[in-house]
Design a protein around this nucleic acid. Structure first.
Lengths: 333, 333
DNA sequence: TTGTATGCGTTATCAA
DNA sequence: TTGATAACGCATACAA
């Protein structure tokens, strides 16, 4: 026998499958004796409910989709660790997709999610994503969607973000107040709204203090290695920066490699402030002063909001996590 | 209309659902005209196949399960990044579970995987897992299972591993040959077979060179922080170690924090060799000499093997990745 | 309290 | 080449 079904149990007990079904889910109007014998036989036979059939029948999948641009060792692990835990507790399961920063792929993935009838979707969008067209259909089906981290501006979808601009202002002002003169800004891919916001914050802080933004001190890098190379080049300038604001852990890792290669001392030759998940900064000596933007908190807020929406579809809300982003002063600035 | 089905298309075209089904999958004996009109209507209506129904009908899920002890920023991201990519290419999807290093939870997850009829399973086992009882049923159903990284010794299941003992011998001998005298070994949870194997390698290397293993220099730590604390304590000993062999990136991160706190210089006061995914070692100054045990390679091999088994169930094999684990000499030893 | 009948969306089998 | 039918495993409205 390949796999035990409700029918098998029913046949063995000479009762109807529907009774077995009810007994197994502790339906009130099944006699205790029936329940008992059903459970016993189910145990003996090693019955495992067929989720596919159940979900199919119930028009739900028990799956929460997670779409990320690409897996990496920064930020996302914290997010995943957090959401998987909650999802499991609620009896759901997590299905993970990488868009590889391609809109085309993202669109396809959203279709797959539809095909799977995911009960909810968490997404950090690709760098090519400018609007939310491809989510409309899912939304119309009533599937809750929560955006986090990399979001689409003014999409109207619920999202978990920080005030990227404001947070960056705080970080950069910390450097300015400490008296640093040539402050480099190291940002992610330039077409990401998160990069733009953080760049605006950098610019704003500079202007607030009468500094002008020198373009050669503003670096946009696609990934860690590009960050390493571009920032490394800048360190070889006649007038290298004396401080660095870096918007992510990934780029911090790149910058640190450049600094190591060049042999600059922190903070005497180069001061650093970053926005970070809060782990990487402690790996270095001295530790890196950072604004803590915890992936775990983002993940938790995102999944909690998603479940809120699952229960109560009208509960639309944007959540801003600024309160949870303290400036952690370590040795680097 | 909530969602377009094959029936809707059929009704609209006044033909039979089965014909629509065949047309949509380009079945040879459907007339070109029928196919054309079906496709057109399907497009117009925005038909999306219902995977749940398809998979249910086909008794397969299109899902590959991945069970890991717990998500973290070391090693696993590389694995996930690699396998998700392959899985997507093959038209499957990835469902991710954390056992939280609990056997009980692992057992439950395996049951869930059965319930979902996953088409294959990749697993790095919990620290409590000593046998493979709970996989037997899945195996009997014909579901291929591949173990990686944290495996169960002599389980008979296909697995992707390195010769942990031998690799550790090489790492530690590198330190011995460089003349270091008091070589500390920093290992993961003591009941993991991977920890035991790597400890044995450490011991073997020492004994090969007539060194005796001092127990106070052998540290087993559950996680990064415990590694930081325990190794930090050791650094304060009268006779602190002059070299460190550390078996994972996570513990390397912990050890580096301890070293930073203590202010020891690398390699003059403390030399280091690690086993690493190959990213973290470059974050430090000097870089950390390591044996590269790439999560990407492990992930690729694991998922490739899984798909082999999916196609050809008799293709049982254990794969040993020693050839892909070079000693990368950076500045730390 | 239990049984009967039906359907979720799809596809394989058989018949036409 | 197409249609009718049944079935995958389960759950529920309804009948008894």
């Amino acid at each position: 026998m390949s796999r035990i079904t409700i029918k098998d149990i029913a046949k063995l007990l000479q009762i109807n499958p529907s009774t077995v079904s009810r007994a197994l889910k502790d339906h009130p109007d099944v006699s205790p004796e029936t329940k008992k014998s059903v459970r016993q036989v189910a145990d003996e036979l090693g019955y495992q409910p067929n989720f596919q059939a159940i979900h199919f029948r119930n028009r739900r999948s028990g799956l929460i989709g997670l779409i990320i641009p690409e897996m990496n060792m920064f930020f996302l692990p914290s997010v995943i660790q957090a959401i998987e835990e909650t999802i499991r507790k609620k009896g759901y399961n997590l299905i993970v997709f990488q868009s590889n920063d391609s809109l085309e792929r993202e669109v396809e993935i959203v279709r797959i999610c539809q095909g799977f009838s995911v009960d909810g979707l968490l997404i950090s969008v690709s760098k090519e994503t400018q609007d939310t067209e491809h989510f409309r259909e899912l939304e119309e089906d009533g599937t809750p969607i929560v955006f986090f981290d990399r979001v689409v501006q003014q999409s109207g979808f619920p999202q978990i973000v920080i005030d990227d601009k404001q947070v960056s202002v705080i970080a950069v002002e910390h450097l300015i107040k400490k008296g640093y003169q040539r402050i480099c800004g190291l940002f992610d891919k330039p077409n990401l709204s998160i990069s733009q916001q953080r760049y605006r914050g950098y610019k704003q802080a500079m202007e607030n203090h009468g500094r002008k933004v020198a373009l050669e001190y503003c670096i946009f890098a696609d990934d860690m290695d590009m960050g390493r190379v571009l920032f490394g080049t800048l360190l070889h300038h006649q007038e290298p920066p004396d401080a660095l604001f870096v918007m992510s852990d990934e780029l911090l890792a790149g910058a640190m490699q450049a600094i190591n290669e060049k042999g600059f001392l922190i903070p005497s030759q180069i001061a650093i402030v970053s926005i970070s998940d809060g782990k990487l900064p402690y790996f270095f000596n001295p530790g890196i002063t950072h604004i803590r933007h915890s992936g775990a908190i983002v993940g938790n807020m995102a999944i909690d909001l998603l479940f809120q929406l699952l229960t109560n579809p009208d509960y639309v809300q944007e959540i801003n996590l600024d309160l949870d982003t303290p400036l952690v002063k370590l040795g680097s600035a």
